[in-house]
């Protein structure tokens, strides 16, 4: 007599009880699958930030790739590593995304050296998104500090592409110096869009600066809002969104109607490595987009 334990081949398993959905719950076969993509173009924004135009190579994969504003992708450079980057473009362009990337570590350094035409990998999209659907019919405040304009661009595009569905839309943007202002070539376009109010401020002006000077919260002073009818999306460093959200709270907006995006170290994007753990949650699964109520209720989120 003898026993042979039968082998179980996970490679032959097609679903795990969840519907196959490449954008959120991944198919088992595709958990670590990397989309091949091409850097089609790069735009120098500042000395440290570059905008990468990226297109998924395979037409079927390109068609399948869909994201919601606020989600992020893992940019994969085989042999170098992976980094989580918020998608910074309109989700109406299927399979084409733009990523605004600051040179800050090994992978982003290498990316900055990569020439247009190079191939990179993408995993995702991952994480929660700004509830732009729920904001229909309401006024929206889109507020960014510094590099926060990168994740904010996705909801800006989403909303400005559907202005008829929204009430008053305001884009407020603050940076430390005029040199740190990103996407300056787009301001004129945003300014001219029907029913969109754009306001920009810097903390430390240089001799060429003729605009407003001060903290981002200064742009909210004297602003007339209908608090029960206004949603806010606030992107920027924790110290910035803390002050902005406190001000918005004073203006009467409910904390559940304000949304912020958190940044943490990530190795998987799938709620497994725990590196992006904040309080009791993971930034990659329950975030990066959180409503402000959830943020103040998580230890060490701010």
């Amino acid at each position: 007599m003898s026993v042979r334990i039968h082998s179980y081949d996970v490679n032959r398993e097609f679903t795990m009880g969840h519907p196959v959905d490449y954008t959120r719950r991944s198919d088992l076969q595709n958990v670590d699958h990397v989309f091949k993509a091409e850097i089609t173009n790069t735009v120098n924004l500042t000395e440290h930030e570059k905008l990468f135009h990226i297109r998924i190579l395979d037409p079927t994969e390109r068609d399948r790739f869909h994201f919601h504003p606020g989600q992020f992708v893992m940019v994969v450079l085989p042999g170098y590593g992976e980094v989580p980057i918020s998608i910074s473009s309109s989700n109406s362009q299927r399979g084409h995304i733009e990523l605004c990337i600051r040179k800050a570590g090994l992978v982003t350094d290498v990316l900055h050296r990569a020439a247009p035409g190079s191939h990179i990998g993408l995993r995702g999209p991952f994480g929660t998104s700004f509830p732009v659907e729920r904001m229909r019919g309401k006024d929206v405040l889109l507020i960014a500090g510094g590099l926060g304009i990168a994740p904010l661009r996705a909801p800006i595009f989403y909303i400005t592409e559907r202005l008829g569905d929204y009430g008053k839309v305001s884009i407020l943007y603050g940076a430390r110096t005029p040199k740190d202002l990103l996407f300056d070539y787009q301001y004129e376009a945003w300014r001219r869009i029907y029913n969109v109010h754009l306001d920009i401020i810097v903390q430390e002006p240089d001799e060429t600066w003729t605009g407003k000077v001060g903290m981002i919260t200064a742009l909210l002073e004297g602003m007339e809002i209908d608090p029960d009818n206004t949603f806010a999306i606030v992107c920027g460093p924790p110290v910035m969104f803390k002050f902005v959200c406190a001000r918005l709270q004073e203006m009467g907006i409910a904390m559940q109607n304000m949304f912020v995006s958190l940044e943490r170290r990530m190795h998987c994007g799938m709620g497994k490595c725990c590196r992006c753990n904040v309080g009791s949650t993971y930034t990659c699964l329950d975030g990066p987009v959180f409503d402000y109520w959830s943020v103040i209720n998580q230890k060490e989120a701010i």
Binding site: I5, V10, E13, M16, R25, V31, M270, G271, L285
Partner: peptide
């Protein structure tokens, strides 16, 4: 964490299913 949440881990599942 590895099987029942979003993004089940095939690496873990392969080991789990093949272990009596």
């Amino acid at each position: 964490v590895m099987l029942k949440g979003p993004f089940p881990s095939p690496y873990y599942k392969a080991r789990r299913e093949n272990t009596v």
